[in-house]
Nucleic acid binder design. Sequence first.
DNA 1: TAGGCTTGTGCCACTGAGTGGCAGATTCTT
DNA 2: AAGAATCTGCCACTCAGTGGCACAAGCCTA
Lengths: 215, 215
Amino acid sequence: MKAETSPTLPLRERKKLRTRQALIDTALELFGTQGFDGVTLDALCDAAEVSKRTFFRYFDSKEDVAMAPAQDVWVAFLDVLETCPADGRPLLTLFEDALAEAIGRMPADGWAGLVLAGRRLAALTPSMDAHCLAFCDRTTRTALALVDRRLALPGPDGQLRARLALDLLVVLFHRALDSWVAQPSGHTPQDLVRRLRATAAELPSVLTARAEPHA
Amino acid sequence: MKAETSPTLPLRERKKLRTRQALIDTALELFGTQGFDGVTLDALCDAAEVSKRTFFRYFDSKEDVAMAPAQDVWVAFLDVLETCPADGRPLLTLFEDALAEAIGRMPADGWAGLVLAGRRLAALTPSMDAHCLAFCDRTTRTALALVDRRLALPGPDGQLRARLALDLLVVLFHRALDSWVAQPSGHTPQDLVRRLRATAAELPSVLTARAEPHA
DNA sequence: TAGGCTTGTGCCACTGAGTGGCAGATTCTT
DNA sequence: AAGAATCTGCCACTCAGTGGCACAAGCCTA
């Protein structure tokens, strides 16, 4: 990941960004080789040359640092949602488009690799998975409040429908991530968007799909 | 919650069930009055008159004990899914029906109250929410494996569609729980099923619902 | 009903995540 | 250059969760 920071930022802010990024990089590196539970916070802080106290000024938990790149997408998503045109698109399409754009905004050079590392780790570490799901849930609630403020949700169940649409989006994103992570190579943001679209395309048939017993 | 246990069970098993239920009851009672974080494990174990070591022989974590009643539904769900007829119903309907039956199997006398207490707690306690979501995710995976074994999932995307259907079910259940918890009274399993059905009925319109900017 | 056998429990010491407080260092402002 | 604001390091602390071992309670034969 590039450590390059806008030179307009004051020195103090640049240093903070660098420390943060250093923690993310070394964390994912160490976790990747020794496993999440195989690395104590003390060891991580030692490697990153910060005190444990400082670590917790940047991240809320040990899990947090490994999920930071993935969380960036959702922060961007909220930002897109805040400013995107509220035309007549179906709500779910609007959300999909916003998420696709948010993914597109991610830095092209190191982000994908960090997300990949984070997801692979989450697959092996229940507590990371839990934190990830909880984060998505919180983001969903924030997004709902945002949408409720900006848009007129029609009908008495408008709020519920919007919430369901957001829940659906989260589900689609996770399944898209699954298949994206599973592929052997070509882990680009663009490819992730492609998989998101493909997963979304399955949705209508999910509502009606049938299955027969084995022959 | 009834402590009555089948008299056919050996004494040792009956004792275990009683200890387990005592832990659940006192936990939800203490958490309810002093908050999840306001009660240490030592205090809880002291109140339930067991050692901390014993607590962890019954539950994997402090969060676990408060979620036990809610988890029972999903255990029952897997059981229903294992034995239900695999007729031509749409997959999602099949899942819905199975969950409805699982809810119906819950004991009528104290279960609803415990789930209610657990959910209210989860709304205030991020770590409980996280554990709950993670548990549902794990159950989803187990269910998928089960379905894959029992049913012929058609097409190359059959697996994905089944997974999405299960994800949808979990989302529907959570939204149903939300509205069930929000109502002032009448917290019965039957009412929860009613709300699950009502939420599911919204699903088709979610895929196409639109929203306009505020007037 | 006394013997061993299995299984559950209590106790204790330990690891590791996360927090509060304060003193000292670094950056910003004027 | 000095003072204000902010960030960091250090240390002691709480509490969740684990491993190990001795003991006790239910179980099963003779």
